[in-house]
Nucleic acid binder design. Structure first.
Length: 886
DNA sequence: GCACGGTCG
DNA sequence: CAAAACGACCGTGCT
């Protein structure tokens, strides 16, 4: 028999909010009401096993128009933002649960419930109405039970007509009479003064209804008689007000309310997102079908995994054409130095574990050829790392066609480090033991026995196959196929090539530079100790703070969480007070160069090649940018001359070759001009004007020749601010001016660049509506805090909404340029090699006879990478080292 | 492992 | 009023 659970959405979430202790997820969004609601919901599903569920909401976005729920507090009050931010979360969760929700403009949840129960009545269906509002008892009947929440929402009490009679001695329909007499202050139902529940019940037991009572007021006496006669109209009206409307023009049919059990693949990720761990555990009790087994590991026998030896190698060779998933387990953060722990080659029917030594040996030749064949497509997790690790073990890897890690990154670039087990859980697949549990963590890392290892890797491969089909669907529905298959996948191979190639570092010159720094540092240290009249660790901000502020009594400009701030900004301000400060600033600068760029870089040079091989990570930056590690070659000094010298040690790897570098000019502002479609900004770039000068002219309303250095500097800061998601405070800090003045600049900017203002407004609105923002090429970034009540979180999300499409589109563009450049080098049969990417810059090493070609080809390719409504501009230069390529 | 500070785009 | 620019990595000190 059908059973419908009908929930008063607003009422329950409101009660849950006040009943539950405050609860926030790790990013500070309140979730307590959603938690309470969900807890109750899961319990009801378990206990009542409904076939249909509908959650009714008041129409309108955040305003409570309905009154019934507010008897809790006794007075009307505005919905706190901590609660209103939970409505979208709740609705999203219901959707993930496959539970119908309904709201209709101009009607309250009560009205919808009244109407649905009326229809159910007519069709002989069973309904449980879940509400905190006693008024609803009027709906009780043989078919309709009212589940009244008590103590918030954790307990419910079920009312049929008998229970109503037991409790009040009234029939359900008399509940309206009761309200008519006693009223309800929170609902603005006046009732009759002086009549409370007791009197009202007594009168109703005697007369049955408001009408009947009013017809017999002559039988009453004293004050009561007077009150009732005076307020007879109020009593009638109050009864009317308390009567639930039951004729809403519904568009939702019975079929829409159907509930066929929670589906783990959507419910699990939704609960995980909310960080409801205890509910996740309960979920297995109420999910249907497949999900029942989802908590279990796949039994080892079912994996059908074979360990490959010289003897049975032919079996693997025979199955090669069936292998559709590959997993290479590596150990070590740096893939250029990673060990290979194990390799699983997996087909839907059987899986093969092949030891790396066997693969390297003569007997493994055929399999190694399979790995190297770019025409054979390989699917797996982090194939970029796989490629590098295998490369340094002498195995060529080619033909990557689907990388699960990369797909997971595109589907949610902010979710950090999504391991295979995390993804299996996300998609409700059979669970995997954690790597941490199999191998141990950090220093305790240990490769388990071959049996254990083999089974673990086979489980991973089996999970990958299923994850891939889920991701294929998700990529397609997010319209990310082009981004994935035509951009990130091909780029992954190009990055690996660049990294394997590496860039030569002139070790002796670097050591010599270190020597120079050393001598200067020694002098500075002595001078600092002398002035301080004591020796201390200058590298310790704590000790330095004590010297500057306690001992020397300099004014405290800024504090950190743990004590005095001693950063460069503070020291600059302190410089006029004391000579020591200049020395400390110089010390800091040199110490940084020495430790990070001389010593750090020296450690990363491979003795065999004299090169550094960075590792570009494609799945870290939330905006779509690359990051660089071991060493980071994206933050080599350039702004100050002392540091810039470091660039002299980056040299071509072949004699007579050159380093050639090309960088995009103002790519982010050009992107902004395109996506905001701002006429003024577009015009500036169409005429290739100096954008900061042009901004100064427009903002300050002066001619080009009237723009002084200071105006240009301010305009430049404003342009940066615009790209970062402007705030008057941020600008005021940057320019060291009062906030009000910064606010004026911004206002003037927006007056002129109205298209930019429109873009900023629109993108934030879009983010609030969709929960994410996109780049030109459909790269997404979710912004869960965009509707947060916490000002900080919300503001941050808003700035991110403004910045990400800009920074992200710029990242898209240079990635396209790299792919096209890689192709161009092949097409032109050039020996030149692409070595580095630094966000808006590409660095090559080029033989002399290709210089002329490359000087044209590189900027042209970069400029054509993605046609926009404004031209892209790339500037090229070259020299005998990276320093000279300026 | 976290806090701080500094380097880049 | 609050609190603040966007995105990264890495070395040192200290718990």
């Amino acid at each position: 028999m059908d059973k419908l659970i009908l929930i008063d959405g607003n009422g329950i979430i409101y009660r849950a909010f006040f009943a539950m202790p405050p609860l926030t997820n790790s990013s500070g969004v309140h979730t307590n009401a959603v938690y309470g609601f969900t807890n109750m919901l899961l319990r009801l599903i378990e206990e009542e096993k409904p076939t249909h569920i509908l959650v009714a909401f008041d129409a309108g976005k955040v305003t409570f128009r309905h009154e019934g729920y507010q008897d809790y507090k006794g007075t009307r009050q505005k919905t706190p933002p901590e609660l209103s931010e939970q409505f979208p979360l709740m609705k999203e969760l219901l959707q993930a649960f496959g539970i119908a929700q309904y709201e209709l403009e101009g009607y309250e949840a009560d009205d919808i419930i009244g109407t649905v129960t009326k229809l159910a009545e007519q069709e002989n269906r069973q309904v449980i109405v879940v509400t905190g509002d006693k008024d609803m008892l009027q709906l009780a009947s043989d078919h309709i039970k009212i589940a009244l929440t008590r103590k918030g929402v954790t307990e419910i009490e079920m009312y049929g007509p008998e229970q109503v009679m037991e409790r009040y001695g009234l029939t359900p329909s008399q509940i309206t009479d009761l309200k008519g007499l006693m009223g309800d202050t929170s609902d603005n139902i006046p009732g009759v003064p002086g009549v409370g529940e007791k009197t009202a019940l007594k009168l109703l037991h005697q007369y049955g209804s408001v009408e009947e009572l009013l017809a017999h007021t002559d039988e009453l006496k004293g004050k009561l008689k007077e009150n009732i006669e005076t307020h007879a109209e109020s009593a009638r009206m109050s009864k009317q007000l308390a009567t639930i409307y039951r004729d809403v023009p519904l568009t939702q049919t019975w079929e829409h309310m159907k509930f066929s059990g929670l589906q783990a693949d959507t419910a699990v990720p939704a609960l995980r997102k909310l960080e409801f761990k205890s509910l996740l555990e309960r979920l297995s009790l109420v999910t249907s079908g497949e999900a029942e087994v989802s908590e279990q590991d796949i039994p080892a026998e079912e994996l059908n995994v074979k360990i490959v030896t010289e003897q049975n190698m032919h079996e693997l060779e025979g199955a090669l054409s069936q292998i559709d998933v590959l997993h290479v387990e590596t150990h070590g953060d740096n893939p250029h130095q990673a060990s290979i722990v194990g390799i699983i080659m997996s087909s839907p029917e059987e899986q093969f574990y092949i030891p790396i030594e066997l693969l390297k040996s003569d007997s493994g030749r055929k399999v190694a050829e399979w790995f190297a064949d770019s025409k054979i497509s390989k699917r797996g997790y982090d194939l970029h790392r796989t490629d590098l690790a295998l490369h340094w073990h002498g195995i060529t890897f080619a033909g990557a066609s689907f990388d699960v890690q990369l797909a997971a990154y595109l589907l949610d670039p902010t979710e950090a480090n999504q391991e295979i087990s995390d993804l299996a859980r996300k998609y409700g697949l059979p669970s995997l033991p954690l790597d941490e549990d199999v191998f141990g963590k950090g220093a305790k890392y240990k490769v388990p026995s071959e049996d254990v290892l083999t089974v673990h890797l086979a489980r991973k491969a089996a999970a990958l196959r299923k994850i891939i089909s889920k991701q294929e669907e998700e990529l397609r529905s997010n319209e990310m196929n082009r981004l994935f298959y035509d951009m990130e996948m091909p780029l992954s191979r190009i990055l690996a090539d660049m990294e394997k190639q590496g860039i030569s570092v002139h070790k002796d010159d670097l050591r010599a530079l270190g020597k120079e720094f050393e001598e200067q540092l020694d002098k500075l240290v002595q001078q600092i100790y002398e002035i301080a009249e004591t020796e201390f660790n200058i590298n310790s901000p704590k000790q330095l703070g004590e010297i500057l502020f306690d001992k020397l009594g300099l004014p405290v400009i800024k504090k950190t969480k743990t004590g005095y701030s001693t950063d460069a900004e503070v020291l600059e301000k302190l410089a006029p007070y004391h000579d020591i400060v200049q020395f400390i600033l110089q010390y800091r600068q040199l110490a940084k160069l020495q430790s990070t760029y001389v010593e750090g870089l020296l450690k990363e040079i491979r003795p065999e090649t004299g090169k550094v091989h960075t590792y570009y990570r494609q799945t870290i930056a939330a905006t779509g940018r690359l990051s660089s590690q071991f060493p980071n070659l994206q933050n080599i000094p350039i702004r100050l001359e002392e540091g810039r010298k470091i660039r002299k040690v980056f040299v071509p790897s072949e004699p007579g070759w050159y380093i050639l570098a090309a960088d995009y000019s103002q790519i982010e502002l050009r992107v902004l001009a395109h996506i905001s479609d701002d006429e003024r900004l577009k015009e500036a770039f169409l005429h290739d004007m100096d954008i900061h000068t042009k901004t100064a002219m427009d903002v300050f309303g002066v001619k080009a020749e009237e723009v002084d250095a200071n105006m240009r500097r301010s305009a430049k800061a404003v342009n940066f601010g615009i790209v970062y998601g402007i705030s008057d405070y941020g600008l005021s800090q940057n320019l060291n001016i009062p906030r009000k003045e910064a606010a004026r600049f911004i206002e003037q900017y927006f007056e002129v660049f109205q298209g930019v203002r429109r873009y900023m407004d629109e993108i934030v609105k879009e983010a609030k509506r969709d929960g994410y923002v996109k780049t030109l090429l459909e790269r997404r970034r979710y912004l869960p805090d965009i509707n947060a009540s916490n000002f900080n979180l919300r503001s941050f999300a808003e700035r991110t909404a403004m910045n990400t499409p800009i920074q992200g589109t710029a990242a898209d563009i240079i990635k396209l340029a790299m792919i096209q450049m890689d192709q161009a080098l092949q097409d032109h049969r050039l020996k030149s090699r692409m070595l580095l990417q630094v966000h808006d810059e590409l660095v090559f090493e080029v033989p002399e006879d290709e210089l002329e070609t490359m000087k044209k080809l590189v900027p042209e390719t970069m400029e054509k990478a993605l046609p926009l409504s404004v031209p892209l501009k790339a500037e090229v230069s070259y020299g005998v080292n990276w320093y000279e390529a300026k």
